[in-house]
Each structure stands twice: as structure tokens, then as C-alpha cells.
Design a protein around this nucleic acid. Structure first.
Length: 117
DNA sequence: ATCCTGACCCAAG
DNA sequence: GCTTGGGCCAGGA
């Protein structure tokens, strides 16, 4: 039996859906009071060069995630105007301290575990 | 297919 | 500190 076009039923998710799921889980691992950068999230999710996709995902469905814990390289907030202020406020509410415009990464950088237990 | 954009990143100057 | 240019990627027009 050979059929030229098999996958009537999609057993595995499309690569992009799988990627989004992984990125989501990764963001959910960031605890209160800690932050990670877009690139770190992408890498920890298993997609080292996909920091921009982290952004896309947050733009689309960030409201379901602790989006405030994802920041730009060096701890800089990359949103603009109102949203930037919103993110800073949310972070400060979690006890995150700032040095100028950047998050004090020495204290709040979340380090993802690459091996479990 | 091309062009543009985005909550990006990094090395240079 | 700053700006610039190049690199990276997917999605939408």
C-alpha cells in the first residue's frame, strides 16, 4: 500500500506551532521577579536564532503570558510609550529593580536550567 | 516572488 | 553613552 499523499491526519504539529508551544512554555518558566531576554528565551526554547519569533508570539498572544518578564538584550525595555511604562511598572511590582532604563540584570537575570533535576 | 516590518542582537566607530 | 550597518527570521501586503 503506498499512497503518494499520506498525512491526512496531522499527527505532529506544524514546525511553527511546535516552536510557539516551546517558546510559550519557556516564558512560563520565568519566575516572578526574574527576567530573560528575547534571545535567551528563544535559545532556551531550542531555537537559538528565533528571538524575533518570540516578539511575534508576544505581540499576538502575550496577554496569556507573563510578557513583562521578557526584555531586550542587557535588560532594556524595548516597548514604546505606554506599553514601556506598563512593563516597567509590572516588573517593579514584582520587586524588579532598575539601573537607569535597564533592569538590574545582576539581580534579576533568570538562568534557564538546561538539564532537569 | 519581492518588499517591508517587528516588543531583536551585536559588532563597530 | 550614541548611531550605523549587517545579520537573522517569519508573516503579511
Amino acid at each position: 500500500m503506498s499512497s503518494r499523499r499520506e498525512p491526512k491526519l496531522r499527527i505532529s504539529k506544524s514546525p511553527s506551532a511546535q516552536r510557539d508551544a516551546s517558546i510559550r512554555r519557556t516564558i512560563l518558566r520565568i519566575p516572578r521577579g526574574k527576567v530573560a531576554t528575547y534571545a535567551q528565551v528563544a535559545a532556551a526554547a531550542g531555537y537559538p536564532l528565533y528571538h524575533r519569533q518570540v516578539v511575534q508570539l508576544l505581540r499576538k498572544s502575550g496577554d496569556l503570558l507573563p510578557w513583562q518578564r521578557v526584555v531586550g538584550a542587557g535588560g532594556e525595555i524595548r516597548l514604546k510609550r505606554d506599553m514601556a511604562h506598563e512593563q516597567r511598572t509590572r516588573l517593579e511590582m514584582e520587586g524588579v529593580k532598575f539601573r537607569g532604563r535597564r533592569v538590574a540584570m545582576e539581580n534579576h537575570q533568570h538562568v534557564f536550567r538546561t538539564w532537569e533535576l
